[in-house]
Amino acid sequence: MRTCLIVDDSRVIRKVARRILEDLGFDVAEAADGAEALAWCRSTMPDVVLLDWNMPVMNGLEFLRGLRMEPGGQDPKVIFCTVENEVSAIREALESGADEYIMKPFDSEIVAAKFAQAGLA
């Protein structure tokens, strides 16, 4: 089963996303910030990361840049899932190595569509 790491400081968002991703057939893990997520990836590299932007300790963009420097860190698909919805922010995420981008609020249909676009259908 493919694994998805949900990285978001909101427990509610992680819970909602977990339900959607489990329905899509993913084995789900959770992290509450970028640092926790990076530690998780160093021990077990997931197939995909659903990533919030604004988080304490280490934000999503810092995590993404760090992940892509790790051995095997180029492999996971990274899908941002954030309230940041300006074109400049989206461009910055893509230039830093994001594969897709979800603008909150989201629902199961949007998540499924974005995962399909990232080749994870």
Partner: peptide
């Protein structure tokens, strides 16, 4: 709407062909 552009449109196409 934001909902409409997130249904089926790859993010790179959104950035290339749309303005907010």
């Amino acid at each position: 709407t934001q909902f409409e552009v997130q249904r089926g449109l790859p993010i790179r196409s959104l950035v290339r062909h749309f303005e907010k």
